[in-house]
Design a binder for these strands. Structure first.
Lengths: 221, 221
DNA sequence: GGCGAAAACCGAACACTGTTCGTTATTCAT
DNA sequence: ATGAATAACGAACAGTGTTCGGTTTTCGCC
């Protein structure tokens, strides 16, 4: 019953397992089943991201992406039901990659690492920001995606911060749910702002916020 | 030379004056000069917002908006050079309205009042979130708009928070620039998140953040 | 190893998008 | 009342995402 007092580690391994088991990740990758199809699907995702990075979200048409992937528009739509679903699939692939890459790190360290890495892939950030806004429409595929993703990611983070509170590492007069939501909303907003003004130092900004959460110096001095 | 120690009031009056003088507000409202034209321009703005509120951002075509305003698409484009500029003009009109409405209030109170009011106009929030994301593209009209708006609004807020720090009302170990940027980014991100999950209490969330800025109880107890 | 069902893929068409252009009708200062 | 600028339109345009019927390719199974 005594709480584990060691530093939190491998925070996301259970999420990764849950996601892959659920088919959220590359397992049920749409309608691709043949070996060639699976490879092509991956190629399309890469081509789409490259086109977005090169021409921006606005300038990325299905025809452009299909050309870049060596495919006709109709051939592309065979894998992803629509352009919107293709874009969502890119974000899902990114999630899966990030989870696998940072699964064995401390939660906040992984969070900061992702943010730091994002600054090197503006095309992806642009796509994310655009879809996060479009997710406001319940009919948009991104809506369900963001709802699921948020619920899935916030839960373990909440527990981690609650544990950190009990350990006395962060102030105990703030709700862990509020912290997690703030971090998410702050990160999303920062990325949108960073696209407009690349001078913004996203990791430093987040770290400043985390510093605000440190406990009051009542017992410290 | 002694600083005014009263509570901050009428925080935005100078901004309003600056904006209107610059033509940012309804003064240089595009190409409308005749009485009928000015009225029609206003009608289009209202119709566009109504269509967005009713059909969502995605479902709001130029033809729909033109119909709602009793105009042909070409007639509409006479006032606003493009659909994107029309949407930016809606946000500008909103800014102007908000500034006039809350100009005589305390800055943070006005900020919270705007957020609170936004929860009653989801169409407008959706439009704002969408354009804030699109502003990442330097070629998009929203880019220049958001850059100007950010610079214009953050400056006085920064000074207000710096003054509040000197008055000892908020912790002095955080950069006022960071506070202001965080508030903006937090508000923007919250609105996007609220569109996905309307259960979020935006004003309460912001107030929680402001509470974190209150000075440490070093002298208090 | 060839059969056949399913997947992969395409060409052509479709409805719709935002925008341009030439032209006509209306406004309003002089 | 005149005339130059504004207001407004119809028609056309290139481009969009998507659908559909059909052909080619893959690959497990007998």
């Amino acid at each position: 019953m005594l709480a584990d007092r060691r530093r939190p580690r491998k925070a996301f391994t259970n999420i990764v397992r849950f996601l892959t088991a659920r088919g959220y990740a590359e397992g049920m990758a749409g309608r691709a089943v043949y070996a060639k199809g699976i490879a092509k699907r991956e190629e399309i995702l890469g081509a789409a991201l490259a086109v977005v990075a090169a021409q921006g979200y606005r300038g990325a048409s299905v025809r452009d992406i299909a050309d870049a992937a060596g495919l006709s528009p109709a051939g592309l739509l065979h894998y992803f039901g629509s352009k919107e679903e293709l874009f969502v699939a890119i974000l899902q692939a990114r999630d899966e990659h990030d989870l696998r890459t940072y699964a064995d790190q401390d939660a906040t360290a992984a969070f900061l690492a992702v943010i730091r890495h994002n600054a090197s892939v503006p095309g992806l950030v642009q796509l994310y920001a655009q879809l996060a806004a479009a997710a406001g429409d319940p009919a948009h595929p991104a809506h369900a995606y963001f709802r699921e993703r948020t619920a899935l990611l916030e839960e373990p983070f909440r527990e981690l911060f609650a544990a950190a509170q009990e350990r006395g590492e962060i102030r105990d007069d703030v709700d862990p749910g509020w912290i997690v939501r703030t971090l998410r909303v702050l990160a999303d907003g920062l990325q949108s702002a960073w696209l407009v003004d690349p001078g913004i130092d996203m990791p430093a900004h987040i770290e400043q916020f985390l510093a605000l959460l440190r406990p009051l110096p009542a017992t410290a001095r």
